[in-house]
């Protein structure tokens, strides 16, 4: 399964970055959202996979069952998810405002002052 998830991480990054290279600011933002999915899955997979147990201590017990998955990666990913959500929402509104002003969301048509 590690192999499969590793390839999936690669697929998420590849597709996300490929979208970021397209002629649409919308696709860029969506692609970056996909990249952050990839990063989350990467953290998750890199730390090791455990199936069927949760890192929650059962009632009456002081600690989760032995062999429960590492609780830290989910906590880190939780933070990362919220952050990437916040960034995605902001960026998509940015793209919308840009598209409203420029009449297109093609970065090749709008981003030219920098040349």
């Amino acid at each position: 399964m590690t192999w499969a998830l590793a390839l999936l991480v690669g697929a998420l990054y590849s597709a996300g970055l490929f979208l970021a290279l397209r002629r649409s600011a919308t696709k860029i933002v969506i692609g970056l959202a996909l990249v952050s999915h990839g990063a989350n899955l990467l953290i998750f997979t890199a730390a090791g996979l455990v199936r069927g147990l949760v890192p929650i201590a059962p009632l009456g017990s002081d600690s989760p069952p032995p062999g429960a998955p590492d609780p830290l990666p989910p906590a880190l990913i939780l933070t990362a998810i919220v952050i990437s959500f916040a960034v995605t929402v902001f960026s998509i509104v940015l793209v919308k405002r840009l598209a409203q002003q420029a009449g297109t969301d093609d970065p090749r048509l709008i981003g030219s002052h920098d040349a």
């Binding site: 590793a6 390839l7 991480v9 590849s14 597709a15 490929f18 290279l21 997979t45 890199a46």
Partner: peptide, 21 residues
């Protein structure tokens, strides 16, 4: 070209995951 670049970076990430796992 775009696809090649994106795939290359994606594959890099896969490689890193496998290494770290």
């Amino acid at each position: 070209v775009d696809a090649a670049i994106a795939l290359s970076v994606g594959a890099l990430m896969s490689g890193l995951v496998l290494l770290a796992a």
